[in-house]
Structure formats: C-alpha cells, structure tokens
C-alpha cells in the first residue's frame, strides 16, 4: 500500500510536464561523419580481433601438431613394421572428421568402443571425434 500525499503527486505530475530529452541535434554532415566513423570502428575492431584470434589459433594448432608428432614418434617403434603399401587416398564418408588410428585394436572392437562412449556421453556419434584407440597392455 502506498501513502502519497496529494502535494507529492502534484509535484511529480509537474515534473512529468518537463520532457526529459538529452542530446543535441546533429547536422547532416556530423551525422554522416559519425555514422562512417562508427562503422569503421566496428570493422577495424573486429578485423584486429580476427587477427588476434588467428594468431592464437595458429599457436594452438602448432603446439597440438608438436604433441601429436611426439606421440607418434614414441608409438611407431611399438608397431610391427609392414612393407609400405601404396598410398591410396580414400573418399571420406559424409560427416566424417577423418580416419581413426588404431594401435593393437581390432576395427570391430573399435566400433564397439566408439558406440559405448557415444552412449555413455549421451551424444550422437557424428558429434564426437576419435583420434586413436590403443590397447592398454
């Protein structure tokens, strides 16, 4: 429940008569320059941000590649040597993120493991990316 005296209500109503508008009228030239400047600021700001994100991305990709190379280098001796097969570029299945590396793992077991992981995570298989599966001995 509000208790407002008639005088207070009248005072507030009088205040309401004053239109509350801040800001100056702009000439066409000033408005045009402001518009252009604003658009430029947005473009320059986002372009610089794009460069920063690209730089961070490059650093991250490079460091990830280094890690993968290290892992492969340590893993290669454990894999029995096979005669080099001629490299045939396979067509990827639609939605596939690429091949998975299997170390001492049967493809059938790998398929089961991937299905179980997807089920446990509650995510569709095509939203997950498996890089490699290795049997822990």
């Amino acid at each position: 429940m509000l208790f407002i005296t008639p005088a207070a209500a009248e005072g507030a109503a009088q205040a309401a008569q004053t239109v509350v508008k801040k800001g100056e009228m702009l000439s066409a030239g000033t408005a045009f320059v402001d518009s252009l400047l604003g658009y430029l600021v947005v473009f320059i700001g986002l372009t610089l941000l794009m460069l920063v994100i690209m730089l961070v991305g490059k650093i991250m990709v490079a460091s990830a590649k280094k890690k993968v190379t290290k892992v492969v280098e340590t893993a290669v001796p454990a894999v029995p040597a096979h005669p080099a097969a001629p490299a045939v570029k396979k067509e990827l299945a639609p939605g596939s993120a690429g091949d998975i590396k299997l170390y001492d793992t049967d493809p059938r077991d790998a398929a089961m493991i991937m299905a179980i992981v997807a089920n446990k995570l509650g995510k569709p298989l095509n939203e997950l990316r498996f890089i490699s599966i290795r049997e822990v001995k």
């Binding site: 100056e24 009228m25 702009l26 408005a31």
Partner: peptide, 15 residues
C-alpha cells in the same frame, strides 16, 4: 549506422 543517419534527418537528436 544507416538508421542512425536516417533518424537524425527525421528530427531525432543524437542520443
């Protein structure tokens, strides 16, 4: 920015 420019033509102030 185009609408900002247009609004100044229609008599709106900068703010």
């Amino acid at each position: 920015f185009l609408a900002f420019f247009g609004a100044t033509f229609l008599g709106f102030n900068g703010n």
